[in-house]
Computed example of a mutant assay.
Amino acid sequence: MSKKSASGHIGSDEVNVEEPSIGRLIAFLFLINFAGLFVIIPLRKTMIIRHRLTQQVVTLFKSLGGTVLWPLLQWFFAGGKNCGFQAFPTFGITAYRRGFYFDFSMANIGVGMICPPMITTSMLV
Rank of each mutant, 00 (worst) to 15 (best):
S2V: 05
S2Q: 10
K4L: 09
S5K: 12
A6K: 05
S7R: 13
S7I: 07
S7M: 06
S7A: 09
G8S: 08
I10A: 03
G11M: 08
S12R: 03
E14D: 10
V15L: 11
V15Y: 14
V15A: 11
V15R: 13
V15I: 13
N16A: 10
V17W: 03
V17F: 02
V17G: 00
E18D: 07
E18C: 01
E19S: 13
P20K: 03
P20E: 07
P20F: 03
S21F: 00
R24W: 00
I26L: 15
A27C: 09
F28I: 09
F30W: 09
N33Q: 12
N33E: 10
N33I: 15
A35K: 07
A35L: 15
A35M: 14
A35W: 07
L37E: 05
L37F: 15
L37R: 06
V39E: 02
P42M: 06
L43K: 01
R44H: 12
T46E: 10
I48K: 04
I48R: 00
I48L: 15
I49F: 05
R50G: 01
R52T: 01
L53K: 03
T54N: 03
Q55M: 05
Q55A: 12
V57L: 10
V57W: 07
V57T: 04
V58M: 04
L60Q: 09
L60C: 10
S63R: 06
L64A: 14
G65D: 10
G65W: 00
G65P: 01
G66A: 12
G66D: 08
T67H: 04
L69D: 10
L69T: 12
P71N: 11
L72F: 00
L72Q: 06
L72A: 12
L72M: 09
Q74S: 11
W75F: 10
W75P: 00
A78R: 10
A78L: 04
G79E: 09
G79W: 02
G79K: 13
G80R: 04
G80L: 05
K81S: 01
N82K: 06
N82W: 09
C83R: 05
F85D: 02
A87M: 06
A87H: 06
F88H: 12
F88C: 01
F88G: 07
F88S: 10
F88I: 09
P89W: 08
P89S: 11
T90M: 14
F91W: 14
G92Y: 07
G92M: 02
A95R: 12
A95P: 04
A95N: 12
A95F: 13
Y96W: 13
R97T: 01
R97K: 15
G99Y: 06
G99R: 02
G99T: 07
G99V: 06
Y101K: 04
Y101N: 02
S105D: 15
S105R: 08
M106D: 01
M106A: 08
A107I: 15
A107E: 02
A107N: 06
A107D: 07
I109T: 04
G110L: 05
G110Y: 04
G112L: 05
G112M: 11
M113R: 09
M113Y: 15
I114H: 07
I114Q: 01
P116V: 04
P117V: 07
M118F: 14
I119L: 11
S122F: 14
M123Q: 08
L124S: 03
V125N: 12
V125H: 05
